[in-house]
Amino acid sequence: MESGGDWCLIESDPGVFTQLIKTFGAKGVQVEELWTIDNGIFENLRPVHGLIFLFKYLQHEEPAGPVVTDNRLDKIYFAKQVINNACATQAIISLLLNCAHPDVDIGPELTKLKEFSMSFDPIMRGLSLSNSSTIRTAHNSMSQQVFFEIDPKTASKDDDAYHFVGYMPIDGRLYELDGLRAGPIDHGPIGPGQDWLDVVTPIIRRRINVYTEGEIRFNLMALVSNRKMVYERRLDELLSDTFDGTNSDAVDTDIPNLRMLIEYEDVKMARYEQEMIRRRHNYLPFIIVLLRILAEQNLLVRLYEEAKERAAQKGQKKI
């Protein structure tokens, strides 16, 4: 079996990843971006099923723990990345296929992939994933429209490359799921009563500290239960308690707040869908017509000179 088809680069954005999950057919889960990993950041996002970390790939970086190659691979879904640009989809699929939380329904397509390839070794799992036309089409549907390239160049060894990996707890241990490794990286046990997020936070901090001071090109996202579903569940519980007369104070506090959060999630998902439409839209005809009109009105050269002058002024301010 050979890996088939081209896979595009996709944006590290919670809306893109949430839409990607929906396109796979999975339900009950979404992605939220984290701007910090300070204490308390996860409190309003629980339950958190996994983390997706984007970082600048270092060619000779050693794994931060032992690489699993034993019979644990019979239970852990791990696929070797065998095709370029697929790491974003592989990271999210690895988290979904290892998640046993009742909120998460991975849907028929991912269920079929898992059942078909679970008995394979990691390389064959990677080939099975990359040859899934449904998954590849879903992945490529997240890309921004590119209608022409200017001065294309071949990537060199000095170009920066970025890579997605996943972190999640499985059977009481913390694992890093990196498709460029031979297997999952075992970060050790999660103690009784210990929160796995308290275990993973220092690991991510250490990884960030490997880079030079001033390097800020990282991105961390959390795979969490669908927020609207969580809020509606809490609201139903509070309404039930209030109806029974056991939680009357919630009428003036928690219930209005939950209704506001539910409305916010509806607005957010509508915004994600609108942003996806804009990513896919062909703006080139509009741009050509706009430039033609500006040229006909003798405004194009003047706007160009003004823009060049503003750029020069900005350059002087930086100096």
Rank of each mutant, 00 (worst) to 15 (best):
M1G: 10
G50C: 03
K27C: 08
E176G: 02
R227D: 14
A295L: 12
L180S: 15
V267A: 14
F120P: 08
I135T: 11
I135V: 12
V146T: 04
T18R: 01
L294P: 04
R205M: 15
A312F: 04
V82W: 05
L113D: 06
T111Y: 06
A307C: 10
A311F: 14
W7I: 03
I293M: 07
E176M: 05
S117T: 06
D236P: 00
Y211R: 09
E309W: 10
D103H: 01
H163K: 12
A161F: 08
E109K: 06
Y211P: 03
T137M: 10
R205I: 14
T246E: 10
F147T: 10
A138C: 02
A26S: 05
T18F: 01
K153S: 13
D244P: 05
A295R: 11
V230M: 11
C99D: 06
I185R: 00
D198G: 02
K317L: 15
I319D: 15
R233G: 11
Q313R: 13
E109G: 02
L58A: 15
R278I: 06
M168Y: 02
L294Q: 11
S12L: 11
L261V: 09
V48H: 00
N226E: 14
D241T: 06
D244A: 14
I76K: 03
H101W: 00
W7N: 09
T137H: 15
I37T: 13
F164W: 15
